[in-house]
Every structure is written in structure tokens, then in C-alpha cells.
Amino acid sequence: GCGSKPAETPADQGGAAAPADKVTLQIGFENSMTEPIGQALQKWADLVDEESGGTMEIVLYPDSQLGNKTDLIDSMLLGENVATLADGAFYADYGVPDFGIVFGPFLFDNWDQCWTLIESDWYKEQEAKLEEKGLKLIASNWAYGSRHTLTVKPVNTVADLAGMKIRVPSNQIQTLGFNALGAAATGMSLGDVYQALQTKTIDGAENPLSTLYGRKLHEVAKNLILDGHVLNFTTWVCSSDWFNSLTEEQQNILTKTGKEAGIYNNQIQEESEADYLQKMKDEGVTVVEPTEEVIAGFREKAQSFYEQGDTFGWSEGLYDTVRAAMGAK
């Protein structure tokens, strides 16, 4: 996504010529520096510098400067010292199908369940499988935001979504997830969405508020329903070959500071979310805060998604396993 101009350009401090013995991790991501994620990353970079006494550094490349997510992940498989943020739907495509479920619609009831899940044995199992594929998760406790739906015509209940063309990122989980809700999921690159909404080629888009606002989509679609269909926690992933080449102490510094920065991220995420919501209201967006009952309607409709486990290549009874692992009743 993109946000406002950066308040600072921390990226400048790195410079091209670092001493050869200095451990450098290059983090490429789609967001810009002023978004909460960017600010939290800066915090992470500072923490790493501090904890390692300057022997390790994180260099930040915002706004997809280093390439898109698949390019970055492919380069990790080559052992490059890069990291990026990615989530379950992505890892499903990289050979760990069960991971995809965390991006399913209405899987979590609240954020606490997310944080319980990432500490669970099930999650550790998934991480291990991912490591076999060459990808190491450094931190998983970063909230990316609740994903909401912004539409041209008002949506008050799940029934209103019927047949609406909602843009989703081009992956199987999110496509079938929105189809389960009765919408017609439409794959499209994020850069095309503004124009597509303006011309009503599509009826809506979904994302966390920061992205919806950052992309200015609220200029051309004036109805927002705070359905929170996905509680989007995200993970920082790097090459496991590269990670294993570090000393144990260096590994610990990375994971520890990554977690710490994640906690900071989650604080500012929450504040900024309220801020974005207010801005959208001020700029004429009609916001629907659905009642428990309406959400229950969404949730019920979403159930058919979890019956398609075979399509995704899920393990037997995955939904129940994951619900148990997150401590849901």
C-alpha cells in the first residue's frame, strides 16, 4: 500500500558499503515508511542495532522497491539475506497448505485467539514444515490490521454481498473465501483497483483500513462495513539457509527484537486504525458497524468455506484442530 510522505528517511543510514563482517538483513515490503508497519520496522532496525552493538543491521526497502513478494521469497530460496512480510495464504502456495487456513474468513473471533494460535504446537509444526521448504519465520506476532470491505453500494448484511464483484488478492484462499460469502471474488492487482471502482468494473474491495485509505479507494467507493472478515496477523520471513548461517546469539537477537517490535507495531496499529476510520468518516464514507447478529450471519455463511478442505489439500479435520489450538470454544 502507500501512505503519506515519510517523516524521516531511515533507509539512508545504511549506505551501500557496510563492513564485510557486519550481518545485514534487507527487509523489502509493500507499505511505505509512514504506515504503522514502516514505523515499527524502524523500531526493529533500531533495536537490532542496539542489541547487537552495531554488528548487525536491518536495511529497509519500503514501497516494493526491492521487488514484489513472490520475487523476494524466491530470492530467499536462493539464500539471499532478505526478509519480507507474508501471511498464511502465501505459504499455502509455497507448499504448506494447512497454513492457508489462517486467512480463511471469520476464523478468529478476536485478536487474542491469533496470539494464542501462534504460540501453539500446531503453529510450530507449520513453521517447521515451512523451514523444510527453505523459509524461516522470524516473527509472527505482527498485526497487519482487521480486513474490512469497502463497497460502491451499501452492504448491511451478508445477503447484500450476493453477486457483488469484490476485489481480492489473486490467491485461492481469499478467492474461495469471498465466494463462500456469496460475492464474486475478482482477482486484480491493487494498483488497478482505484480505476476499477471508479468505473464500477468491480463493486468493492477488501483490505485493512490503512491500505483502503492509503490507496484512496474511499474516494470512489463510499460504503464501508467493518466486518473484520480476516484478522490479519502477518509474519516476517527470511531464508532458512541464511538464518542458519548466523550464530545462535545473532539468531536470538533477531527473533527477540522482532517480537518486541511486533508488540510496538500492534499498539500503533490500533491507534492508527481509529485514526483512519475517523478520516474516512470525515471524508464522507458511510460506515456500518455490524451488530453481533449480522456478524453471526457472515460467520454462518463462511462455514461452507471450511468444508472445501480437499480443494486446498488440508489435513483431515484442520478447522477443528486450529480452533482448538487458538483456544476457541
Partner: peptide, 14 residues
Amino acid sequence: WRRVIGAPFTWLEE
């Protein structure tokens, strides 16, 4: 398919 039938090809982009 998107306009007339209302079922966009989800696989089109790839």
C-alpha cells in the same frame, strides 16, 4: 463472464 454472467474468472490474471 464478469459483466454478463457475473462470475469473473478467478484464474484469469495468472
